[in-house]
């Protein structure tokens, strides 16, 4: 999924920003790795403080780059996730007051006809509409959107 978004970014000539950002991150990882290797292999050196500093810097660099990549991924996913909303349809039978809730299907509308009532006996054949329940409400499950901000 994120690749779809990235493609859209690359298409625009104005935004070389994202590839450049990843290029910088790559450099940072490389640099951190070099520092880390130097720090670890240079244990024979007398100055152990320098080794420590190398290792610390390398680790910090690695951790922060991975953190930045992760944050980018989360940002991309958040935008895509926002669209996944579950809408429910409430149907009621006018005869026996049976009430059913099911996911919304295209073509549903409030005070339109829903499915046949499962509790009432089947109608006399061709008058199928008579047996169908009426949609009385359509709403978003969960309801509270405010917390997303």
């Amino acid at each position: 999924m994120p690749s779809r978004r990235l493609r859209a970014v690359e298409k625009s000539p104005a935004s070389l920003l994202v590839p450049f950002y990843f290029f910088l991150l790559g450099l940072l990882i490389l640099f951190s790795l070099i520092l880390l290797v130097q720090g670890v292999t240079g244990t024979g050196r007398s100055d152990s403080f320098t080794n420590m500093l190398f290792i610390m810097t390398g680790l910090t660099g690695l951790v922060s780059t991975f953190y930045m990549i992760r944050r980018y991924q989360v940002g991309v996913q958040k935008m895509l996730r926002e669209r996944k909303m579950v809408v429910l349809t409430v149907e009621e039978c006018s005869k026996c007051n049976y009430k059913a809730v099911r996911p919304f299907r295209e073509g549903d509308y409030v005070y339109g006809y829903g499915e046949e009532c499962p509790r009432c006996p089947k109608g006399s054949g061709d008058t199928a509409v008579e047996n169908r329940m009426v949609i009385t409400a359509i709403y978003l499950e969960g309801g509270r959107q405010e917390e997303r901000y």
Partner: peptide, 15 residues
């Protein structure tokens, strides 16, 4: 309701 709630599927609170 908020603008977002006004133009997205009707929420339970609005109902």
């Amino acid at each position: 309701m908020s603008l977002k709630e006004a133009i997205t599927p009707m929420t339970r609170d609005v109902l």
